[in-house]
Amino acid sequence: MNSFLFMVRRDLRLALRQSSDNVMVVMFFVLCAVLFPFGVGPELGILERISAGVIWVGALLASMLSLERLFQTDYEDGSLELMALTPAPLEILVLAKVAAHWLTTGLPLILASPLLAVLLNMDSDGYGVLLLALLLGTPTLSLIGAVGAALILGARRGGVLISLLVLPLYVPVLIFGVSAVDAAIGGFEYKAQLFILGGLLMGTLPLAPWGAAAALRQSLE
């Protein structure tokens, strides 16, 4: 447990001292959503209809963009080897890295999303559910992305590869995230979708660190 906290603290410290990386992810997210009204036209009805989907797709892409480098720098400077050689299980350290990553990128995305909801004229009934769904969904994205990030270590053009590996796995989160918001706006029951998002999180929480750690060990051989 202590190792977990030391690791989170180190990664947070690293992220704060290189904060431009995280700001860029949020900027990408915001710009992505801001571009849509230019593309599809300023009709409020259309924007309202697509708002939940746009925000979720933006969050998906932004999360993937930042995950590419989750293990890369540690791999390049040899820190990853040393992590694999500390007495703590590598799975725990992967989980710590994902947690730190989510705190520095996932959380800012969630905080920025109400602004985008306003820009896209989302019905105010959906705000609360959007936040809840993002809160349940973005950690899942980070966890799944960690497996992809671990698998691409050492590969050239890792960025393209990670999107091929990870985006298909993001689809369930996207479907239920969007449908929860749409249901809330339409006045329907939305708990089921949130439960499924929670279930996905519970499923990936033990599986993803395990898979990512196995991939990391492979890359160190």
């Binding site: 690791m7 180190r10 410290r13 001292r17 390049e76 400077d77 080897e81 500390t86 007495p87």
Partner: peptide, 21 residues
């Protein structure tokens, strides 16, 4: 590799690894 993080001070680098170990 020397595993020294560019943005951490030498002391922070070493303290982290000592505690991890």
């Amino acid at each position: 590799h020397d595993c020294v993080k560019a943005v951490l001070t030498v002391e922070e680098n070493l303290t982290f690894w000592a505690r991890m170990h």
